[in-house]
Each structure stands twice: as structure tokens, then as C-alpha cells.
Design a protein around this nucleic acid. Structure first.
Length: 265
DNA sequence: ATGTCACACCTTGTGTGA
């Protein structure tokens, strides 16, 4: 069974690339992030022609997550347990954002997640990021009560170690590399999850994201922020895992590239 | 060079977010 995760940065803009990649990589399940479309606007017919069913959680312009599966989609859950919302500048209330969807596909329980970016250390969005990760942890604890393969896959917007960014000096004072963010990742793992570390198809570090600007991809100045955490039933079944950097090449790509996990179940 | 994308709209530029 092949499972993958990919932040597509707009499913509308990325549809040709998405269809192309699904045809080439042939994952059984794809966890998608940054749909940037409403759930009912997801191109279900186009991916349906390739044999995929869709469970989507999206509201429009921002965020949005989905699970695409050729092996069934059951027990769909939209949103985390006690998920916090974000209170935008000038807004009276917090608004929940579509950043997490859970589903069971082919006997594997999984969540597709898009962790808040944080914007800047000290920004309200950064506090929101940490609170959101708490809710993810609580959801994982709940899910781990069932004895079955379980994984959280997605764009975590955190580099687990200094080696997971192209130049740690360039990230001084930035989000994605702070102790608090890494502690939140560690707390998630302590619930009973371990990271599946993918192979790089080129270079040393399997980066999953390269900024569109400043020739970051040609210079391989990337970050490893798209991660897979699984319980023992999941990680024990991993036969292979790699980052498909080919999908980042050329024009009209996402700034992220897919992470693929092959399981022997 | 805050150098690129993508989206929405009070839309053919501008603001917002990443």
C-alpha cells in the first residue's frame, strides 16, 4: 500500500500537476493540504477518473485539506478534538479553519494536517500554532486508543532539527525552527508516534519545500517540513519512504513536493 | 531586492498569506 502527502498550494491551480503525479506515482492514498477551495469545489470527477474517492474539508480561499483514496474512505472526521480557531486582526471571535481531516483507508487510520504557519515568533498566529499542535496531540491520543495502523501526515510548518533547513543561520529568530515548536512536535511523538524519515532522491537532506523566490529550488535551499508520524503498527510496516523532488521541477508546481510511504500490510 | 505564487474583489490593480 502506497500512502503520500502533498501540500499542493491550490488544488485548482495544481490540478494538471496533481493528475499527472497521481498517474505516475499511483499512490493508494494521498493526503492533500492547502486546497484553497471549498469542499464542494474539489475536482472530484477529475480524480475520480483515476479511481480515487475524496473526503475534503475546505471553506474557500485559505487552507483546506483532503484525503484521496483508491482503497475506500471511512470514519471521516473534519477538525481536531477541541481545535482552536484563529482570531484575525480586528475580528471579534476566533474562526475555525479547515486544517485537519481524518479518515480510515484500507485499514489505515490517518490524518491529513496543515499546521498553522505562525507568521512570526510572538505573533498571535504563532500562539495559535502552538495551541493547534496541542489539539493535534489530544486528537492523536484519542486515535491511538484503537489498535490499528495510524499516522499523521502533512505540512507541519516545523523543521524537526537544524539539519532540516538549508542554512540554520538564515532562520535566526524565525518560526519553523524554535524550541517551542520542536517541543510541540516532541510532545506529539511522545503519545506513541515515531517519524518516518524519507530517502532523498538527490542531495543529503530530503527537503520537501523550497520557496518560490530567490532560486531556492535550483540552489537546493529547502526545508523539511512535510512530515509523517506513525504508531508502531504503521512504522513497523514501512517498506520504503522517499521525497519525490521531481514534482517540484519546472513551471506551475507547488512550492512543496510529495512525501511517499510504502507499507507492507 | 519583500526577488514568487495564488486568491478574491469594492476586479484589469491591490491586499493578504505563505
Amino acid at each position: 500500500m502506497r500512502i503520500a502527502t502533498w501540500n499542493v498550494n491550490s488544488v485548482g491551480a495544481r490540478l494538471p500537476k496533481l493528475i499527472d503525479w497521481l498517474g505516475k506515482a499511483e499512490p493508494d492514498v494521498l493526503c492533500v493540504q492547502e486546497l484553497k477551495c471549498a469542499a464542494d469545489a474539489f475536482p472530484v470527477d477529475e480524480v475520480g477518473e483515476l479511481g480515487y474517492e475524496v473526503a475534503a474539508h475546505g471553506t474557500g480561499r485559505w487552507n483546506g485539506v483532503a484525503v484521496l483514496s483508491k482503497v475506500g474512505i471511512d470514519e471521516v472526521r473534519r477538525g481536531l478534538l477541541d481545535e482552536p480557531g484563529f482570531q484575525a486582526d480586528g475580528a471579534m471571535f476566533e474562526t475555525q479553519e479547515p486544517r485537519a481531516i481524518g479518515a480510515t483507508c484500507g485499514g489505515v487510520r490517518m490524518w491529513s494536517v496543515y499546521v498553522p504557519n505562525g507568521r512570526e515568533v510572538g505573533h498571535p498566529h504563532y500562539a495559535y500554532k502552538l495551541r493547534w499542535l496541542d489539539a493535534l496531540r489530544a486528537t492523536a491520543i484519542e486515535e491511538l486508543a484503537a489498535d490499528r495502523p495510524f499516522a499523521v501526515l502533512g505540512d507541519f510548518n516545523i523543521a524537526p532539527t537544524d539539519a532540516d533547513v538549508w542554512d540554520i543561520a538564515a532562520f535566526e529568530g524565525s518560526t519553523h525552527v524554535t524550541e517551542d515548536e520542536r517541543k510541540a512536535l516532541a510532545a506529539l511523538a511522545e503519545t506513541g508516534l515515531a517519524e518516518v524519515y524519507p530517502r532523498a532522491l538527490k542531495y543529503d537532506v530530503p527537503f520537501t519545500y523550497w520557496d518560490y523566490r530567490q532560486l531556492r529550488f535550483p540552489n537546493n535551499q529547502g526545508m523539511r517540513i512535510d512530515l509523517v508520524y506513525g504508531n508502531e503498527r504503521f512504522t513497523g510496516a514501512v517498506a520504503d519512504s522517499y521525497v519525490d523532488r521531481e514534482a517540484r521541477k519546472g513551471k506551475g508546481t507547488s512550492d512543496h513536493t510529495p512525501v511517499v510511504v510504502d507499507l507492507d500490510l
